[in-house]
Nucleic acid binder design. Structure first.
Lengths: 236, 236
DNA sequence: ACATTAATGGTCATAGAGACAATAATTAAT
DNA sequence: ATTAATTATTGTCTCTATGACCATTAATGT
């Protein structure tokens, strides 16, 4: 039999296949806390619960797994660019009542000031992490969020990735606070500033921000931060 | 409609779903070179080509994606333990002629002396990386191997992971050669030895190996290596 | 014995991190 | 205007792991 004939007779529906989805943890910074965008499920299964945005890969629309993730991000936030990273693929027979299911987990970091409220819509809400901890989400989405946060936390020790969460202009102290929140500990201002500045990941805008006391210089991302790895991780 | 009724009526075959597989790059060290285990495909598609071991998730047997990978590893090498790590999930409509397909890529590091020849079987062969480069493998498996090797290479700069490739006893010079091969550059013996020794990732066995000149002390892995990250990566 | 060679150790310079003190630029109060 | 309080920013020191390079050690072969 030729490959052509083989393919003609091949029907995926002759086999037991897993459910296959893409889920996204879209993270942003709201009032000094990490927030995750959740959508309210109107349909079974897990009807009435909150869930990560995501769903089945659209075989017509999506040219790749990552493209599916980008589509979800765009649908939910209106953002067509932004940091997006695949975290892990989790599959088991238990995680969805419909049967063996597998999800490719991504996370995205967005600057909340660039997300239009209208984009989010009434089915979606930003949830601070602290609130999510007390809430049973749909499927295994509590676990998925933990996995994504763990990845972000790991990356914050050896990259400047959290810059992706910041607005266009920010002070270094503000940036340090974000790192501290993600890492769950305080950092030495001097060491932190040296790292970020000598790596050339931010540059001064020339403006400054007066928040009561000595004004702080404002910086912007140089967009070099995504691939740049520090030669040493932040120590314990 | 209750969730029970919903699930009763749910049929995955009503939807277009991607093909979903797990593929494994099983890496070993043979005569000083990295080898990958390939299987010869007797069936369409890609009949006659060599491919990574892998295939569809068995919804009956596999309790998780990782369990599927462990099953493949066991089938091909007889090893039920060993280092196994998920690398990335790659999906697109192009990579398999049967349609939109997605594969969860894993890699495993095995000590070749613990793999029985009989286990490998006549359908499987160890291929050195250099030989694979000149060979068009099935599907996008050349790319998958590149991705797995890139991951191993990255990890070799900040973990002692390549120890997993070594036999029970080995000299530090032998270990250094393995790192050098993976990284594609030479390392300073002193710096390398300090790293590995002070991190407590290997311990002396008390034996030594006489290979012509001054005998070298033999070491074994302390099995602390999987999770141990060096506080600094090897420099460029 | 001596040259040879691989294994191993000694010493120093360096970069980047932590610790902590010092200085600078504001506002608020006197 | 002066001073206190507060936050931003910098100076300087120590520490550690690495790279570089050289010395020493323990075998082999002639």
């Amino acid at each position: 039999m030729s490959e052509k004939e083989f393919l003609k007779n091949y029907n995926i529906h002759d086999f037991d296949v897993p459910l296959c989805t893409v889920d996204m943890a879209i993270l942003s910074l709201i009032e000094g806390e990490l927030n995750v965008l959740l959508v309210h499920r109107d349909e079974h299964p897990s009807r009435g619960k909150w869930a990560l945005p995501g769903g089945f890969i659209d075989l017509k629309k999506d040219k790749s797994t990552e493209a599916a993730a980008h589509r979800k991000l765009k649908e939910k936030t209106g953002l067509s660019s932004g940091y997006l990273e695949q975290v892990e693929t989790i599959g088991s027979p238990k995680r969805d009542p419909r049967g063996w299911s597998l999800t490719v987990l991504y996370y995205a970091l967005v600057d909340i000031t660039r997300v239009k409220v209208a984009d989010v819509g009434n089915q979606s809400e930003w949830w601070p992490l602290s609130k999510i901890e007390k809430q049973k989400l749909a499927f295994d989405h509590n676990v998925l969020i933990d996995i994504a946060i763990d990845r972000l936390r790991a990356k914050a020790t050896y990259t400047a990735l959290p810059i992706e969460l910041m607005p266009k202009e920010f002070t270094l102290t503000e940036l340090q606070k974000v790192f501290e929140m993600i890492l769950g500990r305080t950092l030495q201002a001097k060491a932190f500033r040296n790292r970020v500045l000598t790596a050339g990941m931010v540059e001064e805008t020339g403006n400054s921000k007066i928040a009561g006391k000595r004004p702080a210089k404002l910086f912007r991302s140089t967009k070099a931060d995504r691939d740049t790895y520090f030669s040493r991780p932040l120590q314990e």
